[in-house]
Nucleic acid binder design. Structure first.
Length: 236
DNA sequence: CGCCAGGTTGTTG
DNA sequence: CAACAACATGGC
C-alpha cells in the first residue's frame, strides 16, 4: 500500500516548521535539539538516555519527562551503571515528575537487566541485527511496547523504522488516510511504503508529526494557520 | 476543577 | 480478540 498524500504531508510540515533535530539530549536543565544529530550517530550514552526518555514519555507530556531527566542528569545518574545499581524505590522517587513512577522505575530496571544479560552492558550490539530482529528483542523486555521499541531503534540506535503514535493516528485520520484506531504495524508499513527508506527522513517525519499535533492538530484542533489544511477533510 | 499528555500491561467478556 | 482498568504527575 502506498499513499501519495504521505510524502506531501511531510514536505508541507517541513516547509512550515523546519528541521526538528530529534531526539533531544538533556544537559544542565535544557533539552538540546542539535542539527548535528542529523549527520552523526548517537554515542552509547546518548542512545541509553534516549531509551530512558522513551520509557518515561509513555502517555506523558515531555515537560514532565524533562523534569525527571534533568534531576537524573544533575545527580549524574543518567547512565547505565548508575541506574542499574540504584534501588527501585529511590529510582521511582527521582523520576516522580514523569508520572507512573513505580511502573517506570520497574521498566527502567527491566531494560537495564536486558542490556546486561543480552549484551554485557552494550546494547549497541543490537545494531548488528536486522532492524526487525532487534525490534523483537526489545519487545520481549517488560514495559517496552511497539512505539517505545521503535523510538529506541530509530532515534537511539539509528535503525530505520517508522515510529507511530497517538498523534500519527489523530492527524492521519483527520486527513482521511486511516481509521482513528488503525493497527500499529499497519500504519507503520503504510508510511514506510509511501516514503523513501531514509533514516533522517523517518526521524524528522515523526518529529514533525509531534510538532503538528501540539501546535495545530491538538485534541481540540486549532486549524487557523495549519500548514496541511489544504489536505484535510476535518477542517471546516 | 477537568482534561490532556510522544503507552503498556493485565484482566475480562 | 476487543474493551477496559490501572498506572500518576503537572500544565493549562
Amino acid at each position: 500500500m502506498k499513499n501519495p498524500k504521505i510524502p506531501e504531508i511531510y514536505s508541507s510540515l517541513h516547509d512550515h516548521f523546519g528541521y526538528q533535530n530529534w531526539w533531544p539530549i538533556v544537559e544542565s536543565g535544557r533539552s538540546l535539539y542539535l542539527p548535528e544529530f542529523r549527520s552523526r550517530e548517537r554515542s552509547f550514552e546518548e542512545a541509553f538516555e534516549i531509551a530512558i526518555g522513551a520509557l518515561l514519555t509513555q502517555n506523558t507530556a515531555w515537560t514532565n519527562v524533562e523534569k525527571a531527566l534533568f534531576a537524573l542528569r544533575r545527580e549524574n545518574l543518567l547512565n547505565f551503571h548508575s541506574l542499574s545499581c540504584l534501588n527501585r524505590d529511590d529510582l521511582a522517587a527521582k523520576i516522580r515528575p514523569a508520572g507512573y513512577f513505580n511502573q517506570k522505575a520497574r521498566k527502567i530496571h527491566a531494560l537495564c537487566r536486558f542490556i546486561e544479560s543480552e549484551f554485557n552492558g552494550d546494547f549497541f550490539s543490537l545494531k548488528s541485527l536486522s532492524v526487525l530482529e532487534a525490534r523483537e528483542k526489545l519487545l520481549n523486555v517488560w514495559g517496552i511496547g511497539k512505539e517505545t521499541a521503535d523510538s529506541i531503534l530509530l532515534y537511539g540506535l539509528g535503525m530505520p523504522i517508522f515510529v507511530v503514535d497517538a498523534y500519527t493516528r489523530r492527524i492521519f485520520s483527520r486527513l482521511g488516510i486511516c481509521d482513528e484506531k488503525a493497527d500499529y504495524d499497519e500504519m507503520r508499513l503504510l508510511i514506510e511504503d509511501s516514503i523513501d527508506r531514509d533514516l533522517v527522513l523517518y526521524q524528522e517525519y515523526h518529529a514533525q508529526i509531534v510538532k503538528q499535533a501540539v501546535t495545530f492538530c491538538s485534541k481540540k484542533p486549532k486549524c487557523s494557520g495549519c500548514p496541511i489544511a489544504f489536505l484535510c477533510l476535518f477542517e471546516k
